[in-house]
């Protein structure tokens, strides 16, 4: 008896779909057979294998993005039961059904659950989130980083540019040019690095222009939403301090 109930157990999905970047979104319901230890991605794979809606009518398979399947690449981020998070680490057993999947519509939707996170990579370029070491001759090893600093800097380096913090932020939207929390935290990371520090003013300057750090309105949703537990609000406040200092130094010509 027990076996038959397990065999008929199923997982219900309500998925927000969109055929092209400009078309209207609509929802479709799906019901897939349950297996132990499923996650949202394996549910989506099931739909791909047998693209039929809950009412039996066939439909185009649902598109999504994923890569690492271990919550380090950020590609599979979507809104699951109202919360932005990674589909690969969203276990079916821990989700309330029906499971609602929506794209993170703060970003341009490419198709179904696939979004374009280009603006996040653009933001990293804008704040120069790298350490310039290229030159015409070998500069030798850089200064060492203190272990105490390395420990918190390592936490910041876990950012996978997933976009969840931007989706959670009420100030990231079409009316607002705010760069978003992730890039600000990366400025703190690269400015903490002993070699990166040598270009810290350039990164601060980038955040002191239109759509920079001033866009933060302190809702503090980002720090709660970040799947990597990155202390985003601490990073923002710390960079607020550095940009303020930098502002006064520039005014005083120091």
């Amino acid at each position: 008896m027990a076996e038959t109930t397990v065999a008929t157990k199923s997982v219900k999905f309500i998925i927000t779909r969109q055929d092209t970047p400009d078309s209207k979104p609509y929802t479709e319901e799906f019901e897939v057979p349950y297996r132990a230890n499923m996650n949202v991605i394996s549910g989506l794979m099931e739909i791909q294998r047998n693209p039929k809606k809950a009412d039996g009518a066939s439909t185009a398979p649902v598109c999504w993005d994923s890569n690492c399947l271990e919550e380090v690449c950020g590609a599979c981020s979507m809104v699951i039961n109202g919360k932005p998070r990674q589909a690969c680490s969203a276990l079916i057993d821990k989700l309330e059904q029906p499971i609602r999947l929506e794209p993170m519509s703060t970003f341009p939707v490419v198709r179904d659950l696939v979004i374009n996170r280009e603006r996040m990579f653009g933001a990293l370029k804008r704040v120069k989130a790298w350490i310039p070491i290229d030159g015409t001759y070998d500069l030798g090893p850089g200064p060492r980083m203190a272990e105490t600093k390395r420990q918190w800097a390592y936490e910041l380096s876990k950012c996978m540019t997933c976009g969840v913090c931007l989706e959670a932020c009420p100030n990231v939207n079409d009316r607002n040019s705010f760069i978003g929390p992730a890039a600000i935290s990366q400025v703190r990371l690269f400015n903490a690095h002993p070699t990166g520090e040598m270009n810290k003013e350039e990164r601060l300057d980038a955040l002191m222009t239109d759509g920079g750090i001033e866009g933060c309105g302190n809702s503090q949703n980002c720090v709660r939403a970040c799947p990597k537990g990155i202390p985003l609000t601490t990073s923002i406040a710390a960079i607020n301090k550095d940009t303020t200092k930098h502002l006064f130094k520039k005014w005083l010509g120091m």
Binding site: G82, P170, N176, G217, Q220
Partner: peptide, 24 residues
């Protein structure tokens, strides 16, 4: 103008600080 530039998402993120953000 700043208020016009903000969304309200207290329905999705029911945290005290987010309420305060909207209340501000």
């Amino acid at each position: 103008y700043v208020a016009y530039q903000s969304n309200t998402n207290t329905g999705r993120f029911k945290y005290g600080r987010n309420w305060a953000f909207t209340a501000q």
